[in-house]
Design a protein around this nucleic acid. Sequence first.
DNA 1: CCCAGATAGTTGAGAAAGTCAATGATTGGT
DNA 2: ACCAATCATTGACTTTCTCAACTATCTGGG
Lengths: 153, 153
Amino acid sequence: MTDPLHRLLGSDLAADPAFLLARARAVTSGAANARLAGFQLKVRSLSVLWLASQGFGPSQRELSEFLGLDPSQVVALVDDLQGRGLVERRPDERDRRSRIIVATEAGLDLLEQALVETRAAGDATFAGLTDDERKTLTGLLTKVAFGGRAAGD
Amino acid sequence: MTDPLHRLLGSDLAADPAFLLARARAVTSGAANARLAGFQLKVRSLSVLWLASQGFGPSQRELSEFLGLDPSQVVALVDDLQGRGLVERRPDERDRRSRIIVATEAGLDLLEQALVETRAAGDATFAGLTDDERKTLTGLLTKVAFGGRAAGD
DNA sequence: CCCAGATAGTTGAGAAAGTCAATGATTGGT
DNA sequence: ACCAATCATTGACTTTCTCAACTATCTGGG
């Protein structure tokens, strides 16, 4: 085996869900980031842009909580996207402390192109799975990622 | 809903496997790290200790590749564990460039205690899943994490 | 109305993690 | 014996994470 991975696949660690999660995430986001590099985006910034483009009008706090990021990280992310004219910070009429993040036309355009790339990256990294398996995987991951607050709850 | 997560669960992002992987990983490793704090360990260092304790005698390069880390990160990890007397760097008789990492008695003791904690953390974070679902999840994750080089190949 | 306490966003500092190039020792092939 | 490749290590540098502070604003109780 020129492949040192093979040997350690028999370890108990290799069967640990937390470890597998970490490695799978590294693989997928690495691949996605590589494909997004041309757009000056990463999965992080793309996620913000994406959420800003579907009519939800998320506040920064909502982004922070949904993405699992510190509020200050969201500030940096939005600063960057706004500086490039991809999103806007709009006032929230109900709460003047809050800012609503919404994608601009340019943001929507870029998003559309970027999603083509990430879908390609996803197809590559999930190539070993059938369509059914992918659905199963996303279902299970949703439960883990949102502590049971899945669609059915 | 006091819970802002709920609203954004309907977004396309919420159905994206790469995003779910990132969030699920953040949840699980966050919980595990919290439980490991008392041992001055994190999932990273525990993984090294674990792999060093099962008779595989991994070299640092193997650790680096298996864990998906830069070799220099492994140096730091092993330095720390070795400095605390939990692992040793042994010469590889076949290749004197290489160092074999193996857990000490103290390392094995600590590992045993630490694994109790991580199992508890795992039970908590995967509480929403049945045993069958957990098996399915680890199977699918293995394929993603190791690009198809799973047990059966 | 006014106050107290909580919350949204922002800033800045410091720790941890990730990336990359260079180096010395060693290996294997020719 | 030589040369390219490999392993571990170091150091520099960037990115990401985590926290504490601060301002502006909201909410609920008197």
